[in-house]
């Protein structure tokens, strides 16, 4: 199966970058890529709390994402982007139930274990200037820790499986997660800021340091 290209609008807004990043990761899975290959038409996602919205256009060989709700969208998914666990409302579902089902499959978060996510995160970011030389990540559900880098870790990160996976997979910004109380950190302000920058860039689809 040929790779599906994900093309973002020119000068993309954050929500387009974030969903573009999510969709690229989703389409990297062969099963999902096959689903996407069957889709033709547009779906829109609109925030229930602010003007953020995007439209995903599926066509053979490529997927385009732009901001705003297209008039041609087959379905419009209304959701709270800040709370992806909240149940979305799907407009025009009854007209395109199969399309909606398949789009839902593509947008389903990829379930990666927190250990896999942590390893991948460290591999991607350890060389970025300012990163701690070592980090200890503790899963509070499992009461289990993983250590990356030097033994004398400079930063400790604590959280439950879901919060850790979400952050390390690029779905959140560390400072925000800590301020919301979902994660705890033991480290300097500088390391917290650098890790926040790294997770911010990861969320926007740019894992490198710019």
């Amino acid at each position: 199966m040929a790779d599906l290209e994900v093309i973002l609008e020119d000068d993309p807004v954050p929500i387009v970058l974030i969903f573009g990043n999510m969709l690229k990761a989703s389409l990297a899975l062969p099963a999902r890529s096959e689903i996407a290959a069957t889709l033709i038409g547009s779906c829109a996602l609109a925030s229930t709390t602010d003007p953020q919205a995007l439209t995903i256009d599926f066509s053979p060989g490529q997927t385009r994402i732009r901001h705003g709700v297209s008039r041609d969208a087959k379905i419009i998914i209304h959701l709270d982007f800040a709370d992806m666990d909240a149940k979305p409302r799907v407009e025009r579902l009854w007209r395109h139930p199969l399309f909606a089902y398949r789009v839902g499959q593509l947008l389903e978060p990829i379930t990666t274990s927190w250990t896999e996510a942590a390893k991948r995160f460290w591999d991607l970011t350890a060389q970025i200037p300012g990163m701690p030389t070592g980090i200890k990540i503790t899963n509070t559900d499992e009461q289990r820790s993983l250590q990356f880098g030097s033994d004398s870790h400079e930063v400790e990160l604590h959280g439950d499986s879901k919060s850790l996976s979400s952050l390390l997979n690029g779905s959140g910004v560390l400072a925000n997660e800590v301020m919301q109380g979902r994660l705890k950190i033991l480290g300097s302000l500088e390391h917290m800021v650098v890790l926040s920058e790294v997770t911010f860039n990861l969320m926007l689809g740019n894992p490198g340091h710019d």
């Binding site: 300012g130 400072a175 925000n176 300097s188 302000l189 500088e190 800021v193 650098v194 926040s196 920058e197």
Partner: peptide, 14 residues
């Protein structure tokens, strides 16, 4: 606060 970028002028713990 600028929480996603750093400069050496800043203090390490505020």
């Amino acid at each position: 606060p600028h929480m996603t970028f750093w400069h050496p002028f800043r203090r390490h713990a505020l």
